[in-house]
């Protein structure tokens, strides 16, 4: 098959408006259109299924019918660039942000980002979390200059919506009920051992963890976090970071 035919074949797979490539033959007749339609349908439903399995909470929120229509549109506009389906859908959140029918669900893209971070954490390399004893033996003078090495699975997300609560309720982690306090929520997603953990962050926590993950020194990260939120509690956030296994080593 020539490169031109391959391109035409691939384009026709995800776009029904593109005609069936020239020169195709089918076992049951001279008209390969029907056989090609079966193949086209299998490709789209396979990729739609891959998206649905990566974003189950989003599917619960909008319902199966809406989700599969939205995912099929995504598949059509953003066919995979890699044979590895585990990364397919990394840009699904950005797509839903611009997807007109989903505009009324303002929190949906951030919930999808949270689920994408969970998938990333699931497939990230294994690494043992930092042993708190390593910090305990540091001299106080050294402390301000300590740089933390983030866990390979770590993601920190910030949202103006209560994404952790919404995610937990739609992932079966929390009871479904009205959300009384519609507040912004920041999340940490990390897989210190076998299970992906999702936690809500206290004020300034996201700024603190992001700064540390970028390689800022501890003192600088504390300044950034205090500026972000005056209620930033250093000792609670340090304890949280150590408990969740957000970091693997110090430098």
């Amino acid at each position: 098959m020539s490169l031109g035919t391959q391109r035409q074949f691939a384009a026709a797979l995800t776009d029904p408006a593109v005609p069936v490539p020239q020169g195709l033959t089918a076992w049951n007749g001279p008209q390969p259109q029907r056989r090609f339609a079966v193949y086209r349908n299998n490709v789209v439903s396979g990729l739609t299924g891959a998206i649905a399995s990566r974003f189950p909470a989003a599917e619960t929120i909008v319902g199966e019918a809406f989700f599969s229509a939205m995912a099929a549109e995504f598949v059509r506009l953003h066919p995979p660039h890699s044979p590895l389906l585990l990364t397919y859908g990394d840009d699904f959140a950005d797509f839903t942000e611009r997807f007109e029918p989903a505009r009324s669900i303002a929190y949906l893209p951030d919930v999808i980002r949270l689920e994408a971070a969970r998938g990333k954490a699931y497939h990230a390399a294994d690494a043992a979390p930092l042993d708190p004893a390593v910090l305990a033996v540091l001299s106080p003078e050294r402390l301000a200059d300590v740089v933390f090495v983030p866990h390979p699975s770590l993601s920190v997300l910030r949202s103006p919506h209560p994404i952790v609560t919404i995610w937990a309720m739609n992932a079966g982690e929390a009871e479904l009920r009205p959300i009384e306090a519609w507040v912004s929520e920041d999340a940490i997603v990390v897989r210190p051992h076998m299970t992906v953990e999702v936690r809500r962050l206290p004020p300034g926590g996201a700024a603190f963890l992001q700064a540390l993950a970028e390689g800022k020194r501890l003192a600088a990260a504390v300044d950034i976090a205090s500026e972000d939120a005056s209620a930033f509690d250093l000792s609670a956030n340090l304890a949280g970071a150590l408990q969740t296994g957000a970091f693997v080593a110090i430098r």
């Binding site: 708190p132 962050l201 206290p202 509690d233 609670a236 340090l238 304890a239 408990q243």
Partner: peptide
């Protein structure tokens, strides 16, 4: 104080 509270319920 962070090291002392690691075993307690998390702020996260």
């Amino acid at each position: 104080s962070a090291l002392a509270t690691i075993a307690a319920p998390s702020a996260f």
